[in-house]
Design a binder for these strands. Structure first.
Length: 105
DNA sequence: CGAATGACCAAGC
DNA sequence: GGCTTGGCCATTC
C-alpha cells in the first residue's frame, strides 16, 4: 500500500485489515495510528458504517473488553476470537498484556 | 451544507 | 470500587 494520501477511514481499513490472527488492537490505538488520538469514537463509527468484511472482532476497547454494538452481541465476537486462539473470560474481557498488538513491534 | 450520531476515553461523584 | 457526565472528531443523514 502507498503511504500518504489516505483519509482517516481508509487508514482504519488498512490497519484493521493488517491485525494478525491471535492479536487484537484498541480503538484508541487504531485512532492514534490514523492520525487522531482522540478519534477512537470515529473508529467505532467506521466499524458500524464501514466495511463489514474487516476483522472488527479483533478490535476491543481500552479496557480489553469486547465492543458493545457488535452484530449478534459480544458472544458472537467472543466466538470469532475463540476461533483465533484468543481466550476471553466470562466478562468478555481479554488479556490486554498479552493479546494487544501494535504494528511496529 | 448543517446538525446529529457514535462498536470510545478520561475524569468526577 | 462501580456508575454517570462531558468531550472528543470524522462520518452520516
Amino acid at each position: 500500500m502507498d503511504y500518504k494520501e489516505a483519509n482517516f477511514t481508509t487508514k482504519v481499513y488498512e490497519v484493521v485489515a493488517q491485525i494478525p490472527t491471535g492479536r487484537v488492537m484498541t480503538y484508541g490505538q487504531i485512532a492514534a495510528l490514523c492520525g487522531s488520538a482522540r478519534a477512537a469514537r470515529i473508529v467505532g463509527g467506521i466499524a458500524h458504517y464501514g466495511d463489514p468484511n474487516l476483522p472488527w472482532h479483533r478490535v476491543v476497547n481500552k479496557n480489553g473488553v469486547l465492543a458493545s454494538g457488535f452484530p449478534g452481541g459480544r458472544a458472537a465476537q467472543a466466538a470469532l476470537l475463540a476461533s483465533e486462539n484468543i481466550s476471553s473470560d466470562s466478562n468478555f474481557k481479554i488479556d490486554v498484556h498479552t493479546l494487544i498488538w501494535h504494528p511496529n513491534e
